[in-house]
Design a protein around this nucleic acid. Structure first.
Length: 270
DNA sequence: CGAGGGACCTGGTTGC
DNA sequence: TGCAACCAGGTCCCTC
């Protein structure tokens, strides 16, 4: 489900509720996520939330002696509710606050993650090898061009590789490649610097617009208030197989690249 | 080192 | 209607 815009939407929803509060309880109903949720998360109890931020698709809640890290995987979501509310199916973990509010982690497929971390969090094994944030200046066409030399991997897989750049998932990879006029299956090492400039501009543009719309809801993504994201209506190629390209009218194609469905216009993307 | 595929899970949709 | 097959927004880990 969640790519960077959806995680950012979640961050903006949970931040104001968490900041300055003390965690009173961590309830683990089902510990079997991607990695088992260990007792270490209980260290959060009694600690003050001093910041909430995002690195890649990880949410980082900073506490006094460390913090909690959450990843939503493919199907995870967080919602704010009352600590006394009856849990629904797949509500695996509650982070209960001294305000009485509760951050409830729901994840049907259990590809998500919740763990305790100690500073410096950037040295955490899951974060250490991550590439730049796509919305920061260090991410540029020149950077992608340099990183891609000699690489034969399809450019779509290349930009979805978290070691290269974080946060670009399956939807926005297809979208940005269409906007830049680049065929998703083209070898990353055979794309010019100028075209990488266009691709970076497209990635930034699509991510920023998606964040502004509260993310993309295809099936089941919801913000912390339970409302869907509205970017799905702005998608140019994703999930539009056989529909006419908005630029030239040609039917949009669907093709599996790197085991993921990819959508593109065979005429506009070369 | 890079490339490619399997693994982890549940649930909704599709097709016979 | 029933049931099997396939598909889904992520990413780690193994092999070649």
């Amino acid at each position: 489900m969640p790519e960077l815009p959806e995680v950012e939407t979640t961050l903006r929803g949970i931040s104001p509720v968490l900041l300055g509060r003390i965690i009173s309880e961590v309830r683990v109903r089902n510990a079997s996520l991607r990695w088992p949720v260990t007792d270490a998360v209980q260290q959060a109890c009694g600690q003050l939330v001093s910041s909430v931020r995002r690195r890649a698709k990880y949410l980082l809640i900073t506490l006094d002696t460390g913090g909690l890290m959450i990843h939503l995987g493919m199907s995870g979501s967080l919602r704010i509710c009352d600590g006394d509310d009856q849990p629904r199916k797949h509500d695996h973990v509650d982070i209960v606050l001294d305000s009485g509010h509760c951050l409830r982690f729901n994840d049907p497929r259990r590809f998500g993650l919740l763990c305790w971390w100690k500073a410096p969090v950037d040295q955490h094994p899951l974060l250490r090898h991550l590439g730049p944030e796509p919305l920061q200046d260090s991410f540029s066409g020149a950077y992608l061009y340099q990183k891609s030399r000699g690489r034969r991997v399809a450019v779509k897989n290349f930009i979805m590789d978290g070691k290269i750049v974080v946060g670009v998932g399956n939807i926005y990879a297809s979208e940005s490649l269409f906007m830049a006029g680049i065929h998703p299956g083209r070898a990353a090492g055979r794309i010019s610097a100028a075209r990488y400039d266009a691709l970076v501009a497209a990635i930034r543009d699509v991510l920023e617009r998606a964040i502004a719309q509260g993310g993309t809801t295809l099936r089941d993504f919801a913000g912390t208030d339970g409302k869907p994201g509205y970017f799905a209506q702005d998608l140019l190629v994703y999930d539009r197989e056989s529909a006419p390209c908005f630029q030239c009218g040609t039917g949009i194609r669907k093709k599996v690249i790197g085991q993921r469905s990819s959508f593109y216009c065979p005429k506009c993307q070369v």
